[in-house]
Design a protein around this nucleic acid. Structure first.
Lengths: 335, 335
DNA sequence: GTGAAAGCGCTAACAC
DNA sequence: GTGTTAGCGCTTTCAC
């Protein structure tokens, strides 16, 4: 008979109501031990009627498993990480695992505060994610006593990390332009300092070479991740002779700028020029005129897999360390 | 001497290392009880050296406080809720409170799963938030044994809810147009079924009436929350005689469509027509040409306050029930 | 088959 | 001043 506990039904209440000991009640509810089928059924029925729900804290204290993981992110804007987060949450709740959200900006102190709070709360593992694949979080997670998975981000060499396969995505984009009969291709992308820019650019060159062309540096324009840069790039390209007939953009915002600028120049998309973006950021890609053909990184699925990988690590199963690249999908719209 | 526990330092280890009982160790670390200053200092030093961190689960089991709250959201896209979430997380970590992220889509079963998981994990309270202020989550939270706060959403009449002050925001927007000397105003907004549309429209009418004008229904155009609708609305307005010189849009996407359409018509913004949006969704508002003047709902602050309100409720303090409206801010850019 | 007892890591009466 | 004891809600030997 729980004396101090106001309201909440405990296993004591169930045991009392079923006139058995708490040990028996526990066994009945967990399908362990041996007892008559009737007793088991009766205890379960009583528990059900009372609306008994076991206290996960007490359980965790004993089992050393909290069925809780932490999600560290420095992406307040959430454009990339939100789908990842949703995927993680979805993929884990089925395993009874809950996710602590830790928004740490780029503040090392805040990060430490969150990590300590999570460790105190005995999380089983941590997923690290962030705005940029090539920029680490402002906190070192490599010596923690629990497993870590990096999602949309790479960690130390021997860590488990999941990222989109940028090269494959970019290759698909370029091949799509080839399929459309485009031969004079350019790549308009973001700042060269970004890892993803390097990857996508590499794949662009590669695809051209594979098609028997000799890619020139003039075909690669780096700038900001903005619509404005997309518009400027078009100005530049159309002020030269022999403008391109296919443009592969480093993200959807650049692509939007490109498409807007082309329309203002009365260059037809997709009649005269085909444009492909990257990110499949629906709010942008569906609102361009025409709607944008672009590469989807399948971030929700990435999140789901990150969650699953973490659960496997927590269970002591072996997960191949290193960076796993998850396939991207080309979403074909009207551009 | 923790025998089964691998690695983690417990209070037993600290007590042993300091040659005191665990009770004394506990008191020293929590600054309770009486003991010599030296003993206290010594125990603390030992704990520090050992890197002792108390197990929050064990603590919660006893104190009935988990310093954990749940955050329920049906907004996977996160445009509105992500800043709210970040604010909540920020506002709570200072109190040592962690946040469980529960992405429930619009799925009642998933919602129930999450709510049950949170209750099992003994969350101290729940914050409910979502895509739409006037659409409840697919789960009833009103009979839970823990406090609930609704953020960016209204719950039952006697619940604590925080929402932006849409009317004040809209009023500020209209008054800004008046200040710019605009007198022929229209309001282009989203579907009439949305509560926010009703509120903003109401404020629009009100502000006109206050300025001595008689608002007509022709000045209010409802449609979709899209750029395309913004463009269509301009077509409509400019096909009639006497087009407006000031347009207050129900959100930033509509405003973007309006501005694009006006530019394509060679109508100058802000020279001939002033445009004001709503949301201050930076990715849209900063990329329009010219950059968009718009209403910011201060969602991060709303999240922070929601977190604080929940903590007060958990502490048993009185929080005035009902819907609190938090002020919006007009962000003046170039339109 | 069922139950008594010990213990997860910690705090709080109450002794001494 | 410090330690002993009980107990938060639960699981798990090990007796009976």
């Amino acid at each position: 008979m729980s004396s101090t506990n106001v309201g909440r039904i405990t296993i004591h209440d169930v045991a009392a109501a079923a006139s058995v000991s708490i040990a028996t009640a526990s066994k009945a509810l967990n399908d362990t031990g041996r007892m008559s089928v009737e007793t088991r059924a009766r205890i379960r029925r009583v528990a059900q009627e009372l609306g008994f729900r076991p206290n996960a804290l007490a359980r965790s204290l004993l089992s050393k498993r909290s069925f809780t993981v932490g999600l560290l992110t420095n992406d307040t804007y959430g454009r990339f990480t939100l789908p990842v987060m949703a995927g993680i949450s979805e993929g884990l709740i089925d395993h009874g695992v809950s996710v602590f959200l830790c928004a740490i900006e780029d503040n090392p102190d805040l990060a430490k505060l969150h990590v300590d709070a999570m460790l105190d709360k005995q999380v089983d593992g941590i997923i690290a994610t962030g705005r940029r694949i090539d920029k680490p979080l402002p906190v070192d997670l490599s010596h923690l006593p629990i497993p870590i998975v990096y999602a949309l981000m790479t960690g130390p060499a021997d860590a488990v990390a999941l990222v989109p396969d940028d090269r494959q995505g970019a290759r698909d984009a370029v091949n799509h332009l080839f399929d459309k009969g485009r031969r004079r291709l350019v790549h308009v992308t973001g700042p060269a300092s970004f890892k993803v820019v390097e990857e996508r650019t590499h794949a662009f060159r590669d695809a051209l070479a594979t098609a028997g062309m000799t890619p020139s540096e003039a075909q690669i324009l780096t700038g900001a991740w903005s619509e404005q840069w997309g518009r400027e790039a078009v100005e530049k390209l159309w002020s030269q002779e022999n403008p391109p007939d296919g443009i592969f953009c480093g993200n959807d915002q650049i692509a939007r700028g490109v498409i807007d600028a082309l329309r203002e120049k009365d260059v037809g998309v997709p009649n005269d020029v085909s444009v492909v973006g990257f990110d499949n950021w629906e709010i942008v890609a569906e609102q361009t005129r025409p709607p944008l053909t672009t590469v989807d990184m399948n971030l929700k699925e990435l999140g789901r897999q990150a969650g699953r990988a973490l659960v496997r690590l927590v269970n002591g199963e072996i997960v191949e360390p290193g960076v796993s690249k998850l396939p991207c999908t080309l979403v074909i719209r009207g551009s």
